[in-house]
Design a protein around this nucleic acid. Structure first.
Lengths: 268, 268
DNA sequence: GAGTGGTCTAGACCACACT
DNA sequence: GTGTGGTCTAGACCACTCC
């Protein structure tokens, strides 16, 4: 353990204040220990998870955290640097470090990669909730959300439109246990992205997602809702979004009309 | 200039060793100066660009670079950290820092996001070059590659297949000036990804790309080549790849068959 | 001016890889 | 063993923001 060899902080149960520069190495010598800043990062992540600081709020200053964890400011800085690189927090010079949120203007629709071909038309799309109901998870949904088959989920179907024309049709499944009381009305009332609502109303913060994309032909139902011909090519985007601890908490199956929009992606 | 205020290193002509803590600020006070490590990063990028160190080779050690640039090792480290984050170089503990390459086993197909649905079938696909010829750039191609309309480009059409079935059909345009002598034969002979060939044979290193993705219906020609029905839904992936200085050097229009494959993407 | 994050330095020691 | 990158520390100063 490159860390606890020299200074006090063993992962969690370290009430011991300072004065512990003694080489406390003993039993657990061998394998799998993380650097100090990774331990700090883990503890900060834990605090984020526990809601000690809420999305949009400032976390304590680097000096304060350094004192709390009894490490140097540089070590805290490196931990926060990684959290910032992971989009978990946002640094703002002269102001502080803030918990990332899906509810702010400039970070809105962080996960939506669909862009109008004409960049001038950017901006939010009109949302329309078609359905919102509670049901028992089908096998594939249960598997994706790591639930038992038949456990209760909330199902939402909605569209996004631009200039009155539907562009996106989303089917969304959420664990009912986490989203008690979610209704079409509440979805309709909330201004801003769905993930902002999830944060504010249910304390569920999406931190990461994976998408699987394919091209499909529109079936009759989808074609009608998206106002395209049956059999028209659509992009199918299956997203699984995760919250803290990599827990999957949303399955979203989207169909995108890509006649005037495209999905953008950067590679490096 | 937060940097040259305090210590000696003005970019290049600084033979002066230490002892220069004097506040040398004078004229150029106002705007747009970058931190020292950004200047170092820029100079390293320049060396990469000039080919001082080739893909796969090691760059000098941090200590050596610190001496060369007359800054501390920590400053060099931060510059290299960013280059590593940008995938320009790869750090290997105990061995050194190496120029990133598209030619190595574990970084192969860095830019190809198409994955078999059955992960067990991963691995390289069979390449087949259908066409390779020199022609004058159509207007849209010229625009994408920042060439004058009608300038010479190399056009390549190729497929990628798995289990004998075509999965990808790529049309590729490259500035002829940079790719003199590229032929179907050379493409066929080279084992490994195309970007590896570009590095080794033409000294063109792709560092970044942008993709625009849509769903389209297969036209007659594409359908035949991909062995699907005409009108079948395909993923259309338009990629513009850039080399140093953000110069666009490849336009690639791909059609993907997504019946047994999908395009994967991670969001955070 | 006080407080925050951002940069830079210098030195110590650790983990890893080659030889 | 020697050399490389990786971690940790401590202190100084800079740049930005808000009071």
């Amino acid at each position: 353990m490159p860390s606890s060899l020299k200074s006090s902080p063993t992962p969690v149960p370290t009430p011991d204040p300072s004065a512990a520069a003694a080489p406390a190495l003993a039993a657990e010598s061998a394998l799998a220990f993380s650097p100090l800043y990774q331990q700090i990062k883990a503890r900060l992540t834990e605090s984020l998870h526990q809601g000690e600081w809420k999305p949009g709020e400032a976390i304590p200053s680097e000096m304060e955290l350094a004192a709390r964890f009894r490490v140097s400011q540089g070590t805290v800085r490196k931990a926060i640097d990684e959290l910032a690189a992971d989009n978990r927090v946002v640094r703002r010079q002269g102001r502080g470090t803030f918990v990332a949120t899906h509810a702010e203007r400039h970070t809105q629709y962080r996960f939506l990669r669909l862009t109008p071909d004409d960049a001038a038309e950017a901006g939010p799309m009109a949302r329309h909730v078609l359905d919102c109901k509670r049901l028992r998870a089908p096998a594939d949904v249960a598997r994706a959300l790591a639930l038992k088959a038949g456990e209760a989920v909330v199902f939402v179907r909605r569209t996004l439109s631009r200039h009155g024309r539907p562009v996106v049709l989303d089917d969304i499944w959420l664990p009912a246990e986490l989203f008690k009381g979610l209704s079409a009305q509440r979805l309709a009332q909330y201004a801003g992205p769905m993930y902002g609502l999830f944060e504010a109303e249910f304390g569920v913060h999406m931190i990461r997602a994976e998408e699987k994309i394919r091209a499909v032909a529109a079936d009759a139902a989808s074609a009608a809702l998206l106002e395209v011909a049956q059999g028209a090519p659509l992009m199918s985007v299956e997203r699984i979004a995760h919250t803290y601890g990599d827990r999957p908490v949303e399955l979203r199956r989207g169909l995108y009309v890509t006649t005037a929009h495209h999905y953008r992606n950067g590679l490096s």
